[in-house]
C-alpha cells in the first residue's frame, strides 16, 4: 500500500489521460497479445476479435440514426 500512497500525487495512468477506459486499454493489450501468436492459432484468435453491432441513442422518446460499429476492436 505504501507505493499506492506515494503514487497518489502522480498523474492518472497514461491511457486514462488519453481518454481510454480500462476496458479499451485491456482490449488493446489483449489484441497485442493475440498478434504475437503463430499462424494456425493467430487466425483462430482473430475470429474472436470481430465486433459488430448497431447502437442508437434516444432523445425525446425517439431513436436517432443508429451508428454501426463493425470490426474495429481498437478505437
Amino acid at each position: 500500500m505504501a507505493s499506492a500512497v506515494a503514487g497518489s500525487s502522480a498523474a492518472v495512468p497514461f491511457w486514462r489521460a488519453a481518454g481510454m477506459t480500462y476496458i479499451t486499454y485491456s482490449n488493446v493489450c489483449a489484441s497485442l497479445v493475440r498478434g504475437c501468436l503463430k499462424e494456425p492459432y493467430k487466425s483462430e484468435a482473430a475470429t474472436r476479435e470481430k465486433v459488430h453491432f448497431a447502437i442508437s441513442k434516444w432523445a425525446n422518446g425517439k431513436p436517432e440514426k443508429p451508428t454501426i460499429r463493425s470490426d474495429s476492436p481498437e478505437e
Partner: peptide
C-alpha cells in the same frame, strides 16, 4: 430510453465485442 443496441448477435458473441 437512453440507448438501444441491436444486431449484437450477427457474429458469434465474443468478449471483444
Amino acid at each position: 430510453i437512453e440507448m438501444s443496441i441491436t444486431e449484437l448477435q450477427k457474429n458469434p458473441l465474443n468478449y471483444t465485442q
